[in-house]
Amino acid sequence: MSDVLGRETFESIYAGTPAWDIGRPQRALVEVADRVTGTVLDAGCGTGENALFFAGRGHPVLGIDFLEGPIMESRRKAEERGLDAEFARMDALTLLGLDRHFDTVIDSGLFHVFSDEDRARYVAGLAHVTSPGGRLFLL
């Protein structure tokens, strides 16, 4: 992964509480929740608050993140809250290899961490996993 901020940087940030981990879903996603349909992919889910919000609304959800720590925390939160959500350690730059499709994809702060070259790879992956007529909500 040749992101602008490297893996070590994110591991260091997640050793504490990242500034973006606000303990609830992002307000912008709550505001568009009625426009979210069907299956949801949360790309770069972090500790899962956005994914868990949509799972709580009845959506089948897959949250992916390239770090194991946030994925483990997401799974813990899902179990603690009694929510059915799937979380997997996965690099979002490898979405072309994912044989699944989603009606809605959410990205809260992932796109901007990639280099220009990796953004093109990421967008191609998003196109691959988004169902025809699906929606992308990118913050």
Rank of each mutant, 00 (worst) to 15 (best):
M1G: 09
D3S: 10
V4Q: 06
V4D: 04
G6E: 09
E8F: 00
F10K: 02
F10R: 00
E11G: 02
S12Y: 00
S12L: 04
W20Q: 00
D21E: 12
D21S: 10
I22Q: 01
I22D: 00
R24G: 01
R24L: 01
R24D: 00
A28S: 15
L29W: 05
L29F: 15
V30N: 00
V32P: 10
D34C: 06
R35D: 15
T39F: 02
V40I: 11
D42E: 05
A43E: 11
N50Q: 03
A51F: 05
F53N: 01
F54P: 01
F54E: 04
R57H: 12
P60C: 05
V61P: 08
G63W: 05
F66P: 04
L67G: 02
I71K: 07
S74M: 13
R75C: 09
K77C: 04
A78M: 11
E79R: 15
R81K: 12
L83C: 05
D84R: 14
A85T: 06
A85R: 07
A85C: 09
E86F: 04
A88Q: 15
R89T: 12
D91Q: 04
L98Q: 12
D99P: 06
H101G: 11
F102N: 07
D103S: 12
I106C: 03
I106H: 02
D107F: 07
D107M: 09
D107G: 10
S108M: 08
G109I: 06
F111Y: 15
F111G: 01
H112Y: 03
F114T: 06
F114N: 11
S115G: 01
E117S: 06
E117A: 13
A124K: 15
G125Q: 08
G125I: 07
A127M: 14
H128C: 03
V129E: 10
V129C: 12
S131D: 02
S131P: 01
P132V: 01
G133D: 05
G133H: 07
G133L: 06
F137D: 04
L138M: 13
